[in-house]
């Protein structure tokens, strides 16, 4: 799967995730999860970041998945004190879990290994406004910078015996940290703006040194469309 053009990846990911989101039956949802898992393993990326992603999305879903079996009405399967577990609720929770995980796996498989900069350029070719793409590209460039700055400032706080707690003092320290980084950022923004103006920046986006070509410009989205259609058909079949 290496060497597939970013644009093809972006388009394919969107097609497949859209198809997954529209599935209703457990069979098609299970098939989608299987397909997504195979793609994720084929993508040849490290498994650890994938597990991180899955753990995170499960964190958000925990509330929904735990409550659905108890709150969806239906004949009780089992009861925990006053609470009844319904089969309908369990199936709803299972279906959502399958879809959500399939979507995360697809995003990881198709887009996880592509640098954001390349995706930005790919998005522009797919019709996203140039200014928005430009903002995206500039932002990715500065994030590393401010991550370092925040890391340094937090080290400095720890060196002055700052302990993270949920106290007013902690919150004030975090507020001052955010304020200080913002002040520095505003000064930086001023300098960057002046420098860009000196270089006659007019809002255009020269993609210097970025070779966006790759294999599968047409084949990859076509395959995604086929797989997505197959999943939806499987789902709608009586």
């Amino acid at each position: 799967m290496n060497g597939i053009a970013p644009r093809a990846r972006l388009l394919s990911a969107f097609i497949l995730i859209l198809a997954v989101v529209s599935l209703r039956g457990l069979m098609a949802q299970g098939a989608a999860l299987g397909l997504a898992l195979i793609l994720a393993l084929l993508s040849g990326q490290a498994v650890k970041p994938l597990l991180h992603r899955l753990a995170h999305v499960e964190g958000f879903m925990a509330l929904l998945l735990l409550m659905l079996p108890f709150t969806v009405p239906g004949p009780p399967l089992a009861s925990l004190g006053p609470l009844n577990v319904s089969a309908e609720g369990l199936l709803r929770a299972l279906g959502i879990a399958l879809k959500v995980n399939a979507a995360v796996l697809l995003g990881f498989a198709l887009l996880g290994a592509v640098e954001p900069v390349r995706l930005g350029h790919a998005a522009r070719r797919l019709g996203v406004p140039v200014r928005l793409v430009q903002l995206f590209l500039f932002t990715t460039r500065y994030i590393e910078l401010f991550r370092d700055e925040i890391r340094r400032r937090r080290e400095a706080m720890r060196a002055r015996a700052f302990v993270r707690r949920s106290s007013l003092h902690s919150f004030r320290s975090y507020g001052n940290l955010a304020g200080m980084v913002l002040v520095r950022a505003l000064e930086k923004a001023q300098r960057v703006e002046e420098a860009m103006r000196c270089r006659a920046f007019d809002g255009r986006l020269p993609a210097i040194g970025l070779d966006d070509r790759g294999r599968g410009e047409i084949a990859c989205p076509a395959l995604a469309l086929f797989a997505g259609a197959a999943l939806v058909l499987l789902d709608r079949m009586p």
């Binding site: 200014r131 903002l135 990715t140 401010f146 913002l182 950022a185 860009m196 920046f201 809002g203």
Partner: peptide, 17 residues
């Protein structure tokens, strides 16, 4: 147009914070 880099710098800060 000329506000793009400045907005991006702030967007990056908000993201990292």
């Amino acid at each position: 147009e000329e506000a793009i880099p400045g907005t991006a710098v702030l967007a990056a800060v908000f993201f990292t914070v």
